[in-house]
């Protein structure tokens, strides 16, 4: 579904990603793990068109999307739940969730999806008319995931969902995401919490200083001594 080949990208003169190769198949849950500053968010931003790659190819459903404007990429079916949630703080929860469906015009399907995300996160139903900025951290993350789902994405990318949240809240949100995955969604999970990511994913890539240093099935990576030592501290 998504095939990244020899991708180089960065900010201005600073190159962050070096010859990154990665593949996501339809219906798969793939984790992208790595420490702070490894380039995970940069990779997501490059896929979603916020950053133009220096070289390399990103193919989505067979179409080259490297360098396309972000709105075209959203239209093709890639949506993301950004790091730090990045809600529209002054807008209501309902407006935020509906912004996810901005590029869509299928009114009935939008309504269906809206009902689905509210069922997924009942907490949002009570908060619909509240300003998103007034939500707690966990609620904001729910709102951000709901917004990402409203895009009806073929590929959903979730960036650092667990960051700064209580473990119990993280668990609640991941349970909801598992339900989405069970419906056959293709998801790219970006996490600093390696164990958490590997539990969710079929396969994973390990990014370090902008390079993919390791990849394989989640089980393989969990058994890998280097991963155990460096990322899990076991």
């Amino acid at each position: 579904m998504l095939k990244i080949e020899n991708l180089n990208a960065g900010y201005g003169d600073v190159q962050v990603l070096w010859d990154v190769n990665m593949e996501i198949n339809e219906g798969e849950v793939v984790a992208l793990v790595g420490s702070n500053g490894a380039g995970k968010t940069t990779l997501l931003y490059t896929i979603s068109g916020l950053i133009k790659p220096k070289s390399g190819s990103i193919k989505f459903l067979g179409q080259e999307i490297a360098g396309l404007p972000s709105e075209d990429i959203v239209n093709l079916g890639i949506s993301q739940v950004p790091q730090g949630r990045r809600l529209f703080a002054g807008m209501t929860v309902k407006e935020n969730i509906m912004m996810g469906a901005y590029h869509r015009n299928d009114k009935e399907k939008i309504k269906e999806d809206f009902d689905f995300v509210l069922e997924l996160f009942p907490r949002m139903k009570e908060r619909l008319n509240q300003a998103a900025g007034s939500l707690s951290g966990g609620e904001q993350q729910m709102c951000a995931v709901a917004r990402g789902l409203m895009a009806a994405p073929k590929l959903l990318m979730i960036d650092e969902l667990s960051l700064g949240l209580a473990p119990l809240v993280v668990e609640t949100i991941y349970e909801a995401i598992e339900r989405v995955i069970a419906r056959g969604a293709t998801v790219l999970i970006v996490e600093q919490d390696v164990l958490l990511a590997l539990e969710q994913a079929n396969r994973a890539y390990v990014l370090d200083v902008g390079k993919v240093i390791l990849s394989g099935s989640s089980q393989e990576l969990m058994d890998n001594p280097m991963i155990k030592e460096v990322y899990m501290g076991i």
Binding site: S48, L50, S70, E71, F88, M98
Partner: peptide, 23 residues
């Protein structure tokens, strides 16, 4: 209308607005 919401989204967070598929 959508145009109005796109303005609000840009005001609140322009990059996030792009992520929503707003030109």
């Amino acid at each position: 209308r959508k145009l109005g919401y796109s303005w609000l989204a840009i005001r609140e967070d322009e990059d996030a607005a792009k992520m929503m598929g707003i030109n």
